[in-house]
Nucleic acid binder design. Sequence first.
DNA 1: CTCCAGTCCC
DNA 2: GGGACGGGAG
Length: 213
Amino acid sequence: MKGLLEIYNTLLNAYGQRHWWPAKTPFEMMLGAILTQNTTWMNVEKAIRNFGELLSPEFISSISNDELAQLIRPSGYYNQKAIKLKAFTQWFERYSYDVEKAIQMNGQFLRTELLAVKGVGCETADSILLYALNKPFFVVDTYTKRILYRLGYDLPNTYDGLRLKIEESIPSDIYLYGEFHALFVEHGKRHCKKTPSCQACPVDAVCKKRIFV
DNA sequence: CTCCAGTCCC
DNA sequence: GGGACGGGAG
């Protein structure tokens, strides 16, 4: 995908550094990745706030699904997500709830493990790998696909197809991956929405789907 | 009333 | 691939 790095620099210049992912601890980051599925981050923050000082894998594993569901209610899909958080925490127990232990493992191996967890799909797995486990997997989400499509890139039809195509187009670097994904999200929220608002769009000069007003 | 940092099950 | 899951903000 030629010109991807130029897109990155243009978005970076427009929006500035994102410093993603916003979370106090790696465990909070990983829970947030599940809670934010098809949900606004604002509602995830409400859910995380409900834990107060109790946000820990030990606490998650100790309470019932119903109690957990009520705590995360603001994030939506709370019954489903309660099951997901439980399943994810069980996975984390393999590493004694210690992120450093997980980080020692091979990235592809961790990805396979995460994808086997109920509730963790490709995007959530890659978010966790990139932002909590420091593994260079590019996170592809709805914004990524929408933005690249509108910019005129020919997109593979599978998640991993697009992820690999992006990964081979830019340097393999966790800082770059993290900021680039964050910039896609910011651009998607500000301009490249489902119904686009192209006024003052920072990449309108190179966009094939620009809507003139 | 629409839309949101998706994923699972059929 | 189509439907279900879901509260909260603009």
